[in-house]
Design a protein around this nucleic acid. Sequence first.
DNA 1: CGACTGTATTGACGGATATCGAAACACCTT
DNA 2: AAGGTGTTTCGATATCCGTCAATACAGTCG
Lengths: 106, 106
Amino acid sequence: MLREPLGEEAAAELSRMFKALSDPVRLRLLSLIASHEGGEACVCDLTGPFDVSQPTISHHLKVLREAGLVGSERRGTWVYYWVLPEALAKLSALLQIPAVPAKAPA
Amino acid sequence: MLREPLGEEAAAELSRMFKALSDPVRLRLLSLIASHEGGEACVCDLTGPFDVSQPTISHHLKVLREAGLVGSERRGTWVYYWVLPEALAKLSALLQIPAVPAKAPA
DNA sequence: CGACTGTATTGACGGATATCGAAACACCTT
DNA sequence: AAGGTGTTTCGATATCCGTCAATACAGTCG
């Protein structure tokens, strides 16, 4: 997708997703969720590994959710989060480089 | 890479790269550079398509450069920028989803 | 119903970021 | 060397972002 210039709208939407990934805590949250057994994790699994407060974790999870990177659902007492693979796949594909870079490596 | 939790340091470095991509102007700059003939573009090619001032473009290019996403070189009058494929490949691979998501699609 | 646990929201504060105009710097031309 | 064009840096300002403490909300259990 880096073969042709991005339109303004596309760039705006994608930049929102990348912004969600631009914080170390959120990146680690995402990887914790993705790598957690069953592909999902409840908030109680996610607050332990960090030095920040629980409201801050909740805030970051909200950012990830509003960026369309994770889904969430309340099941009884706990709220579970899981990764939305299509979103990550979209970003991954975007960063895929054309096979033959025009500037040959020196 | 989302199979196991990210370490703090790794997350910090990666988040710096994603932060560089978290601005629509920078995303469009990157795609303009990548898709430009020859795989590189001079600043004079990059200021036209945007509504922001030329110093602002220069600032964004600096951010991309310091994030390790692009390289630059002065050749005579003009400064040329090109994409560093390894960096983008690294991010792309990170977002690659495990082939079998644990939570099966509904 | 009332108390308790898990999660989300609110409000506030400090630091970072995007942007601009002005000025400085680099190189080319004459 | 002097002037001109392309690019970066500087200084200032308005806004955004991460964080916390306090509070509110949701569901469970006695």
